[in-house]
Design a protein around this nucleic acid. Structure first.
Lengths: 210, 210
DNA sequence: TGTACATCAGTGAACGCGCGTTCACTGATGTAC
DNA sequence: TGTACATCAGTGAACGCGCGTTCACTGATGTAC
């Protein structure tokens, strides 16, 4: 996706808020999250440097909006992943959620970086809220609860199990996106790693043994 | 640890390089990795802003030196963790390595952030080298190899197993240090989580089932 | 259909800031003789 | 033991840069009547 710059003969952009968010993604991809600035985003959108203020208020506003977009995408993809799998055992749905999380990071590196890896206070504050609100965390909790109901997981282990799963997915996503896994273990396709990390047999055990 | 500022009546600091690295850690802890600057580090060390150049050349040099320090600590802690456990089964040593990795992140948040989470090119380039050189990765590989030798893991699964373990430890460390786990799952002590994530029974299975 | 007017979105100049880096310098230390 | 000198570590001024934010403005759009 490329930034839609303003039509040359029009004073108003028409879709500046979106164009700026696209620009933010490009900056993160090209130069890292630390390089994001209002002025650079405005430049890429073909607009004066003061224009973003009309849409996002200030820099924090733009960054939070970008993260919000990411959380929406992530939660939608997670919901989609298990929407068509209601009749499947919970451990398989959990595997789907984990793989979806990692694929989201792979396909939306800029969003993943901003959402989870910048360490900005404004992002941390917003992220907690987003994770609770948008349903991604509820899907994990709910599916783990089904595992308990099905007698495959002790009730007292539900939280630890959820944490372990989230950690596995988050760590895989982080190291993969960083390029650490490809560097240390060349020639391992992501899908192979996902098979191993979230494969049915493994999760079945984890549920039983925790 | 606090920055040792220069003795007031001495022109030379005496231990400026170390004092600057301590200052970097404080800045990361207080204001995030993005706030690290040569001038702020010099300020905290009680020295003129041009002084750091004599020790680290430029800003990248200072950051790489800080990361290098972190990799040294991590690899030493990992080596120590299994040094006294040579007679223990490999799956238990692997659990020790994982827990050590997470505890390192918990106890050295600033270093962990800089080493793995800034996304700076200069850090990424150095980190790959450090991980290979300083032995941390070798410890993981070596212990996984023992698992294979002991017939507890198929040779073809060794790499995937190593990736899964590293991911589990890295994700747990990241989410814990971010405060995401405490926020989503309050009142779970880190040691409890480590027990569940790297506990003997779980790893025994993972080795057998991958 | 036309006109006044409010509202909104983008402009461009200006501000002050902290930054990395350079450079000629100076104080301190150590070494050769 | 003393002296010249090289070397090293820290200084302070200067530079140019990109940044976030503010502000009076202006062009465009839509709405009331």
């Amino acid at each position: 996706v490329s930034v839609e710059t303003k039509t040359q003969d029009s004073y108003h952009h028409g879709d500046l808020a979106n164009a700026l968010l696209v620009a933010v993604g490009e900056i993160v991809d090209e130069k890292g999250a630390a390089a994001v600035s209002l002025r650079e985003a405005a430049r890429r959108a073909g607009v004066s440097h003061a224009a973003p203020a009309h849409h996002f208020g200030d820099k924090d506003g733009m960054i939070v909006a970008f993260c919000h977009q990411g959380f929406e995408i992530l939660s939608r993809q997670m919901a989609d992943a298990i929407a068509g799998a209601a009749d499947v055992p919970p451990e398989e749905r959990i595997a789907l959620l984990g793989a979806t999380y990692v694929r989201f990071a792979d396909e939306h590196r800029a969003h993943f970086d901003m959402m989870f890896r910048t360490g900005l206070d404004v992002v941390d504050d917003a992220s907690h809220h987003e994770l609770e609100e948008n349903g991604g965390m509820d899907l994990l909790r709910g599916t783990v609860a089904e595992l308990v109901e099905a007698g495959k997981l002790a009730p007292g282990d539900a939280e630890a199990f959820a944490v372990a799963l989230w950690s596995q997915a988050h760590g895989l996503a982080s190291l993969w996106v960083d390029g650490a896994i490809p560097k240390m273990f060349p020639d391992m396709p992501l899908e192979d790693i996902l098979d191993k990390a979230f494969g049915e047999s493994r999760l079945g055990f984890v549920a039983a043994s925790l």
